[in-house]
Lab assay of single mutants.
Amino acid sequence: MPSETPQAEVGPTGCPHRSGPHSAKGSLEKGSPEDKEAKEPLWIRPDAPSRCTWQLGRPASESPHHHTAPAKSPKILPDILKKIGDTPMVRINKIGKKFGLKCELLAKCEFFNAGGSVKDRISLRMIEDAERDGTLKPGDTIIEPTSGNTGIGLALAAAVRGYRCIIVMPEKMSSEKVDVLRALGAEIVRTPTNARFDSPESHVGVAWRLKNEIPNSHILDQYRNASNPLAHYDTTADEILQQCDGKLDMLVASVGTGGTITGIARKLKEKCPGCRIIGVDPEGSILAEPEELNQTEQTTYEVEGIGYDFIPTVLDRTVVDKWFKSNDEEAFTFARMLIAQEGLLCGGSAGSTVAVAVKAAQELQEGQRCVVILPDSVRNYMTKFLSDRWMLQKGFLKEEDLTEKKPWWWHLRVQELGLSAPLTVLPTITCGHTIEILREKGFDQAPVVDEAGVILGMVTLGNMLSSLLAGKVQPSDQVGKVIYKQFKQIRLTDTLGRLSHILEMDHFALVV
């Protein structure tokens, strides 16, 4: 994948999101292997301009796509893939009243899908469409860049269908997702969380590099694949309309690839034109409109599966009536509230959605109805927002919020430890010299600072030695090549209790 991002070429006709291997024109390309080798690009942008032909009021008969309808489940399912879809609609009884809503608040519980998330729908649909058009064949390999849930859905379907599955996901995604993927037989590649989507090191860039190296491999490409919004247009939206008897006044959905909100909203605009569509985008993402909503100094966020630093091709923002931004604290607070007060075992993005819903639905009156999409299960986040310690460490809970008995030293300040200034190293000294210094002084790690004293990161003896043994660096290389740029900081005025929580999850903390 090139470091400079080429513009994806656009073909003359058809839909841009065809499933299957992508040609340089962004659509299915038939021909000899030699032709494909000559024409197939190194990668295709996940934010390529959409060429979708959908228009409100256009006859369904003019759609270029294969459409399906929700099917009634048999008493005995032939395999677990038949437990994807037909998820329950559940009334939220307490939270709406707590925040003064007059309307009825309903939750579409997508964590009841077989793999635990709304992404099971698009995973199965992308595979079925690729099999139907002859792209996927027995023994082929599926590769997908994902925040985890699409990966789980694909790995689940691949396990049943017999495909090899490789999932490329950023490091910030939970260990629970990784464990589930491994249990399903998927191979996992992790990428830096802070890598831009168009960087060769991003999950998108690495996935395309693997595709170019592995024979008979395919990126189904949830960011561009029409099967993504079509899955929701054909099934999720129809289920909502049936469950609500066609009567709903507002739908609120958090947005990642945009397939969920695009597919549902398009069908609702056709069948229930008075329904307002509300999009939820986390602070630090750029999906919301108008652009002024996205202006923030924050560039990272903890909530998973929603928000991006690019506009995915499948996201149709014209069908969203209003956007709201959400933050991590309210997302996790509301997710825990949904679990504790409503018994809905949902993930953090569901918290984002409901946090926005109780604001947006203030305009609705008694007798009206708001539906929220709860995308995934708490299963993926047992060591994250479900953990009091994690919430404390991230600053989303305060010590006084917890009532468990603490040891005698818990409320003492870090400054009472009488710490001395640490050994520091410059980023320009060599790895070999740094190892000598650390061994001589008896230290395992040291902060790396520039000549102005600005902290650049941390270097550890173990990481340097393993990097040297693996051949990633040489003793003569500058130590700046092996620094940890993500590390926890703590102030002298913070409590030892807070430091204790940090050290339970990290090997060190830097006192500043």
Results as ranks from 00 to 15, higher is better:
Pro2Met: 15
Ser3Ile: 04
Thr5Gly: 08
Pro6Asn: 09
Pro6Tyr: 14
Gln7Tyr: 15
Glu9Ser: 02
Glu9Trp: 02
Gly14Arg: 08
His17Ala: 05
Ser19Leu: 05
Ser19Tyr: 08
Gly20Cys: 02
Ser27Cys: 15
Gly31Ala: 09
Asp35Ile: 15
Asp35Ser: 08
Lys36Gln: 15
Glu37Tyr: 12
Glu37Cys: 08
Trp43Leu: 11
Gln55Arg: 10
Ala60Tyr: 11
Glu62Asn: 14
Glu62Trp: 05
Glu62Phe: 07
His65Gly: 02
Ser73Val: 11
Pro74Val: 14
Asp79Phe: 14
Asp79Trp: 05
Asp79Cys: 08
Asp79Lys: 02
Asp79Val: 12
Met89Ala: 05
Ile95Trp: 02
Lys97Leu: 11
Lys97Ala: 08
Lys98Met: 13
Lys98Val: 10
Ala107Cys: 12
Cys109Arg: 02
Asn113Phe: 02
Ala114Asp: 07
Arg121Leu: 04
Arg121Thr: 15
Ile127Val: 11
Glu131Phe: 04
Thr135Glu: 02
Lys137Val: 02
Pro138Gly: 12
Ile142Pro: 07
Ile143Arg: 02
Asn149Leu: 06
Asn149Glu: 05
Asn149Val: 02
Ile152Thr: 08
Leu154Gly: 02
Ala159Phe: 02
Tyr163Val: 02
Glu176Gln: 08
Arg182Val: 02
Arg182Cys: 09
Gly185Cys: 02
Pro192Gly: 02
Thr193Ile: 09
Ala195Cys: 14
Arg196Thr: 10
Val204His: 09
Gly205Asp: 02
Ala207Ile: 02
Ala207Phe: 02
Arg209Lys: 11
Arg209Ser: 10
Leu210Trp: 06
Lys211Ile: 09
Glu213Leu: 07
Glu213Met: 12
Ile214Gly: 05
Ser217Leu: 02
His218Ile: 10
Ile219Lys: 02
Asp221Gln: 02
Asp221Cys: 06
Asp221His: 06
Arg224Tyr: 02
Ser227Gly: 02
Leu230His: 13
Tyr233Ala: 02
Ile240His: 13
Leu241Ala: 10
Gln242Arg: 10
Cys244Lys: 05
Asp249Lys: 13
Leu251Asp: 02
Val252Ile: 15
Ala253Cys: 06
Gly258Thr: 04
Ile261Phe: 02
Thr262Gly: 07
Gly263Trp: 02
Gly263Asn: 04
Ala265Leu: 04
Leu268Ser: 06
Glu270Thr: 02
Lys271Thr: 12
Gly274Ala: 15
